[in-house]
Design a protein around this nucleic acid. Structure first.
Lengths: 275, 275
DNA sequence: ATGCCTTACGTTATACGTAATTATT
DNA sequence: AATAATTACGTATAACGTAAGGCAT
């Protein structure tokens, strides 16, 4: 059986052009390398080198052998790299949803159950979820419509409801429930990456949103301006639970969504842990 | 660096499904194999097996690893085979000519000089010689016209002359030299694979040839029938040199050919040994 | 004289086998 | 009980380094 170490030594000799130089590069004594190359030739039953008293050089066969040995070594290296990649993919649970809050909730739950696994969260357009799941790019996805497809598991995960959070000093804060006309002409703060909610709020033309990317800045604005903050029953906004603030549900059928957890059949074990 | 032996052990375990079975197949003790697989995992830093107290099985990663290890092993095996093929090609001197006798003569000379090299003789149409040499399929060729081409060495090799050999009892045997009209209507025996000579004799319409493939049969026929035998100055026919037989040259310009030895520039060393 | 390869020799490290241990069927 | 894997321990082989030798530039 061929020996990889030996092959590596051989290409090093081929590249340096001498035993002594190669030996130094390999952190090996020259005599050891000399014997190793003699063994290689003996095991192959072929002459790779042209030996003169004081000089060693590759013969025509040796040149060819070194060339292809390089390729073989590259493939061996790629074998290990591929293996590592595959292992990482196996230990990474890739999840995707069109809304941030359920995604975070799921991520937290997975981490609770599998503290050693790597979780890759991704937020994508609704249309990209199912194809991604089918092709194995995602292990779990969260959709807002149930999926009925062979090979795909799907079940109700949780419900998300849009809320308006504001200081108690706000004119609307006193109401027991918001009405639709309260929102008309109202200006609110909102998180920029609302995912699916962005589309669902488009019909509320009278509601003006000031969007913010940074959650810290959003917090500052909410506290300093006193403007209502658009949030949700799952969204752990930076001002959530603060004293002196109240949350009121948005009065609309569009403000409630049910999310469904989907996985491939082969991931039934994982799926059943969360559904 | 990856170890091939270890990889082979791994695929054997994968194929047999147990350490003990694989150990037996590998002529190794079970504990040795167990440790070897532990080393493999440790060196990769990956878990390939699902270990239960009494049973070992491949994990998902292990299945993948075994699959690609098989491929890698195949490629390693092919590497050695390719090398052997290449070595054989290097040590084989492939020669070609359009006439058998000079080919045999050259072959004998090469064998004298390089007793260890393998000589592959081939007889081909004249038109195929030069292309074969250019493309490296032949190391040496013999042509009957000198080649003047860049990259090709060419020099006079030897002369071949057609003879008619017959028993001293034959009517023509007494003549000091044959004349053209002697051949008209004459029936002679000939070796079938004359190569180039076959074409060159076509103008001698009056000469009838009885061709024979087998040299032993040709000998029998020549001796029993007493018919003249068409031979050449190089052709060591089975009846050559026998007592009671004489050889007379065929009286024609067409019955003499000069052969030229050709080789590629890269084979100058070989070429100069014979030219 | 210096550089480079080979041979010789003693040593170490690595992988092996035997035996013992544990757990599963 | 029998089978199968792991752990423990002593051993043997194979590769290493140091030292010595020979032959070139």
């Amino acid at each position: 059986m061929i020996d990889f170490q030996q092959l590596l030594q051989f290409v090093t000799v081929a590249e340096t052009g001498s035993l002594s130089a190669a030996a130094e590069q390999l952190h090996l004594s020259q005599p050891a390398l000399s014997r190793s190359m003699q063994r290689l030739e003996a095991e192959l039953g072929l002459t790779l080198f042209v030996r003169r008293r004081n000089r060693i050089a590759l013969g025509e066969l040796g040149l060819y052998a070194a060339e292809s040995a390089r390729e073989l070594l590259r493939e061996a290296q790629r074998y290990v790299e591929d293996l590592r990649d595959y292992a990482e993919r196996l230990s990474t649970i890739r999840i995707c949803a069109s809304s941030p809050s359920p995604l975070w909730r799921l991520s937290a739950q997975i981490h609770e159950r599998f503290p050693n696994s790597i979780i890759a969260k991704e937020q994508q357009e609704t249309e990209l979820l199912l194809p991604g799941l089918r092709e194995g790019r995602f292990r779990l996805i969260l959709t807002h419509v149930p999926v009925e497809e062979k090979g795909i598991l799907c079940g109700k995960y949780l419900e998300e409801r849009l809320l308006l959070e504001m200081p108690t000093s706000h004119p609307l804060a006193g109401k027991s429930a918001l009405e639709e006309q309260d929102l008309n002409g109202l200006t609110v703060l909102a998180y920029r990456h609302m995912g699916i909610w962005r589309d669902r709020l488009s019909w509320l033309e009278g509601l003006h949103r000031i969007e913010q990317e940074d959650l810290d800045v959003l917090e500052d604005l909410a506290l300093s301006t006193g403007l209502p903050l658009l949030t949700s029953s799952l969204f752990s906004s930076p001002t959530a639970g603060r004293a002196g603030r109240v949350s009121l549900p948005i009065p609309s059928r569009e403000a409630v969504l049910t999310f469904y957890l989907c996985a491939r059949d082969c991931d039934r074990e994982l799926y059943e842990k969360f559904c």
